[in-house]
Amino acid sequence: MIPAQFEYAAPVSIPDALALLRSNPDAKILSGGQSLIPLIKFRLAQPALLVDINNIGGLDYIRAQDGWLKIGALVREADLEDSALVRRSYPLLYDTTLSVADPLVRNRATLAGNLAHADPANDHPATMLAYRAEVVATGVNISRVIPIDDFFRGLFATSLAPDELLTEVRVPMPKPRSGGAYLKMERKVGDFATAGVAVQLNLDAAGKIEQIGIGLTNVGLQALRAKRSEDALRGALPDAKGIERAARLAQEDCDPASDLRGSVEYKRNLVRVLTMRAIEKAIERAKGM
């Protein structure tokens, strides 16, 4: 497939990239490109200018700092997979990165791009909701921190301004007795989720759930927070009945569409089952089992 013509620029600094974004209202940022380039090939997207940020140095860091895991905009999925820190302390993020597309795509695709693209079928948005993550948006004169709940604004839409660059993703460092899990039903490797559920929680000394985040993938116009399910479990000593009830609330609160991957009824039921299993797995991990 031959894409439509576009101008191309490969700046080496963030200010240069921002100036280019300002110079053309039809500019688009090219990062890993594993979603954008297929869209351009199908001519579903026809940006006038591609601002390739891959040559900007210093954006490929993964570091624990000030209570956050800070992940730079050019960290690839494969970097997360290879990070001992992520594998050891961020099982939800590790699960999620392994379920994105396939190993070849993961060598290019970035976490920041996965969020900025804001496809409800992408895996990281639900995970970042579960973590209560933040993203850093860098603009010409100022950068701002956006809580993840204020970031997604519907189908392929975010609260980033056209001349802002998502430069960093911040995941809170887990408290003691924390655990998380991402469960995704996909028809085959590389397919989008029929549905996916991300859970992150921590237990107090008595074994009660202190904090819990639950995010849902591809069952709405954007990644959804299963708020009523979270509320049902927060402060509770988790038992089978309570987990089942929380899962039923997620089944009611999600908003899937019927498509080739399944009917609305099927997907709602899938959300119930995956929510239950993801909570159980997160608790097991929190207990160090």
Partner: peptide, 18 residues
């Protein structure tokens, strides 16, 4: 699939300029 600086990637999903 080709190796880009040693890593396997899909060369239909990159531009030559990159």
């Amino acid at each position: 699939t080709i190796l880009l600086d040693g890593k396997p990637v899909k060369s239909c999903t990159m531009f030559a300029v990159q």
